[in-house]
Design a binder for these strands. Structure first.
Lengths: 207, 207
DNA sequence: CTCTGTGAAACACTTCACAGCG
DNA sequence: CGCTGTGAAGTGTTTCACAGAG
């Protein structure tokens, strides 16, 4: 029995996919084969990944889908509801606020924040736009644990600093800026231009 | 002279970052050190990545920033303007259409496409919304080379098939669906729930 | 006999450390 | 002397292939 604790980063990313893939699968028990087919990875990969959660399967049979779903959710820290804030109520922030998939997946958007007083007080998709100066207090009182930065690039750095000081450690950044987060923070970047440039490369060179 | 041709996938992703990072750096010559500092990776990593482009630097001095920028852009296939289409003119599609960073980075959104006749004919940020049935013809006549899927999850699969048949090989998918693209296609997924779930894991476990 | 769980091998990527060029 | 380019070592991830449980 090895000591292997830390789950590889690559595995964490796939666990979230498996969770999504389980929704598309029928039946009480599921094989690594079936999961692999639906998310497009190898079956051995699936088994290896799931083995980090402990022995979840039954040899000769497969995995119990409900049991497995719960095991993955537990590992991803998806117990109860996780509060999310959207910083920046521009085009993108408002579009993200309109995204319906949060609730189903255990996330709840608490509020949007903006610096523009003309927007503050309005509602988007039932969610209030609050002033950016209220953000830190809301974070500290536990209203949200994850922040999504949807501001212009120039503001992203300042927002990141404020979030850090307010104790938020998990950030999804949509602003096209290269951030240098403090080591305590986990920042994931979604940069449209970067993605398109990567696609451009593979268009030119093939796989 | 080694045969090493294929650029690692991880390197391709960073080249796009370096390009972005160069904008934040002053001066005619730049060291691997400086680039590393601004994008947050190791200097050795930067030098290794750039070495895939051939000998671009000068020993004892560094890299010529303009020369380097061009070398990276060439490698990423960013010569001239690359046409982009946005499929789905809902919240997200319209928000993406409003994103200003395309032009600066050599991309040009040609049009949005939607199935809703009420939207067809309108303009978003100066861009026309065309009917989804026009998409294939526009693709085939070379109006765009990359597509962004911003439809509901249910429609994503069908859209992907149509794009493939129209000869589009590069797709950025924002729909929360697990797609199984044909091998000829390169699909990059941006899934909000998946990202939040990954952040949730690291919030619970630390790095 | 089927399908999991996992050593071991293969592969991919990163980091070290230094030779060598300007 | 300073900084690049790169063998070689180290680390992380994937795949193979099979023992073993049900």
């Amino acid at each position: 029995m090895p000591v292997m604790r830390a789950i590889p980063r690559a595995t964490v990313a796939r666990l979230a996919q498996y969770l999504q893939g389980l929704d598309q699968l029928e039946g009480r028990t599921i094989s690594s084969q079936a999961i692999a087919a639906v998310v497009g990875v190898g079956a051995a990969q699936v088994r290896r990944d799931l083995s980090y959660l402990g022995h979840q399967g039954v040899r000769g049979v497969g995995y119990d889908s409900e049991h497995l779903r719960r095991a993955i959710m537990r590992e991803l820290g998806l117990i109860g509801t996780v509060g999310v804030a959207i910083i920046g109520a521009g085009n993108l922030g408002q579009a993200l606020a309109g995204y319906g998939g949060f609730g189903e997946r255990g996330f709840e958007v608490f509020s949007l924040y903006d610096i523009d007083l003309a927007k503050v007080g309005e509602y988007v998709n039932g969610l209030p736009i609050r002033h950016i100066d209220d953000m830190a207090a809301d974070a500290r009182s536990g209203r949200f644990a994850i922040a999504i930065i949807a501001t212009p690039a120039e503001a992203a750095d300042e927002v990141l600093t404020q979030l850090n000081e307010a104790g938020i450690r998990s950030v999804l950044n949509f602003a096209p800026a290269v951030l240098r987060p403090p080591t305590a923070m986990e920042v994931r970047n979604v940069d449209l231009s970067t993605e398109l440039q990567i696609l451009s490369f593979y268009r030119k060179h093939g796989r």
